[in-house]
Amino acid sequence: MSDPINANPSILDENAMPTRAIKGKAPVVDRNIQELFAFSLLHTAEPASGNVPALVSDTESEQEEEDPIDSQEIYDLIAHISDPEHPLSLGLLSVINLPDIQVHDSGDRNSMSEVVIRITPTITHCSLATLIGLGIRVRLDRCLPPRFRITILIKEGTHQSENQVNKQLNDKERVAAACENDQLLSVISQMLATCK
């Protein structure tokens, strides 16, 4: 890559990246008690004595609480993608911002869901916006279940040729063609290598 297009972007502090806040305080675990119970044969043997736990699990898994896919999760998936020209992640460069991610998911596994992401290029004539968008698309294609439709848009008023880029990013044919290009794919591989 020749001279960087935007040599001096403003950078977000790493601590300031939005993260999933720890839900409440962890309950005080009675570690001592658990340890004692763990070695009481009566305590552990009794429920098991009714033969092998004969696939009781269906009831168990129903009790499992569901974590819905939300915008923070999407953010965590894509915020650590590296920018193609800076040694920084898209999150740090504020190309991706939490409020610009919308998830429409009913939670029903049989109906379509959608993710809409609006990216903010670091400067209005950033020619790498399409590459960044493609990187995000590849990442999400790999990480989201197939029922999700992924829409990637340039945030309104942040790019000179907003419409063109939007069209290019959401054109199935063109995305598929791009993914056939080995060289492009290896650039994207590098961008995704920093994902956590």
Binding site: E64, E65, E66, D67, I69, E73, D76, L77, R109, R142, C143, L144, P145, P146, R147, S189, L192, C195
Partner: peptide, 25 residues
């Protein structure tokens, strides 16, 4: 792994993403 990336649990989905990414590479 398409099933696991649609798991109910977030931690599982994350692990599935990582595994899938590794296999994609």
């Amino acid at each position: 792994l398409e099933v696991a990336v649609d798991d109910k649990k977030r931690a599982v989905r994350k692990a599935a993403c990582d595994a899938r990414q590794a296999f994609y590479e």
